[in-house]
Amino acid sequence: MRQTEIVLRRMTHDDLPAVMDIERTTFPADAWSEAMMRGELADQPRTRHYVVAELGDRVVGYAGLAAAGDQADVQTIAVLADHRRAGVGTALMNELLTEAARRGAVSVFLEVRADNPPAQAMYERFGFRRLGLRRRYYEDGTDAITMVKDLGPRHGDPGDEA
């Protein structure tokens, strides 16, 4: 029987072999290097929040957030192809948005490949809206669509109503 409960936990350096396999499979044209991922983990938890999604004892996805001040950025999110459309991406995105709000972000930004309509649709379901276009952003020359989700004012900011 296949375990269906998704467990999210903080990413550690021990997860890098599995994460890098997913990274290279999911983003063959512009995968991050292991050194880049290690650099991201080095800033955790100060300005970064990285999590893995496990089913059983297998890492099937991961996601990362950068947060500073009132802004957060989805750095990356990936799920193994055979586990997509099973709630893993939703669980990861919910975790990132919860953490962004916990850290006081009022807006969350991301870039998505212009040639990836399924990812764009997922982000729109989460309330992200298109902001702009970064021409030839990816290694292979593909454009990136920038998107933003407004989380609302920080507690205690001017304009907050009591």
Rank of each mutant, 00 (worst) to 15 (best):
residue 4 T to P: 12
residue 4 T to M: 11
residue 5 E to Q: 14
residue 6 I to T: 11
residue 6 I to K: 06
residue 9 R to M: 13
residue 10 R to I: 10
residue 16 L to W: 00
residue 16 L to K: 03
residue 18 A to H: 08
residue 19 V to P: 02
residue 22 I to C: 01
residue 26 T to H: 03
residue 29 A to T: 13
residue 40 E to T: 09
residue 46 R to W: 05
residue 49 H to D: 00
residue 50 Y to E: 01
residue 50 Y to T: 04
residue 50 Y to D: 01
residue 52 V to F: 05
residue 53 A to C: 07
residue 56 G to E: 04
residue 56 G to T: 01
residue 58 R to S: 12
residue 62 Y to V: 06
residue 62 Y to L: 05
residue 64 G to I: 06
residue 64 G to T: 02
residue 66 A to V: 03
residue 69 G to E: 02
residue 71 Q to H: 10
residue 76 T to N: 11
residue 76 T to K: 07
residue 79 V to S: 02
residue 80 L to T: 15
residue 83 H to L: 07
residue 84 R to F: 15
residue 87 G to T: 10
residue 88 V to R: 00
residue 91 A to N: 05
residue 92 L to W: 06
residue 97 L to K: 03
residue 99 E to P: 07
residue 101 A to S: 09
residue 103 R to T: 00
residue 106 V to C: 12
residue 106 V to W: 14
residue 106 V to H: 13
residue 110 L to M: 03
residue 113 R to H: 15
residue 115 D to H: 15
residue 116 N to V: 09
residue 117 P to D: 09
residue 118 P to D: 04
residue 120 Q to R: 11
residue 123 Y to N: 04
residue 126 F to Q: 00
residue 127 G to W: 01
residue 130 R to G: 13
residue 132 G to I: 04
residue 135 R to I: 01
residue 139 E to T: 06
residue 139 E to Q: 12
residue 142 T to R: 13
residue 147 M to H: 06
residue 148 V to S: 12
residue 150 D to L: 11
residue 150 D to M: 09
residue 152 G to F: 07
residue 152 G to Q: 04
residue 153 P to L: 08
residue 156 G to N: 01
residue 156 G to M: 06
residue 157 D to Q: 01
residue 158 P to F: 15
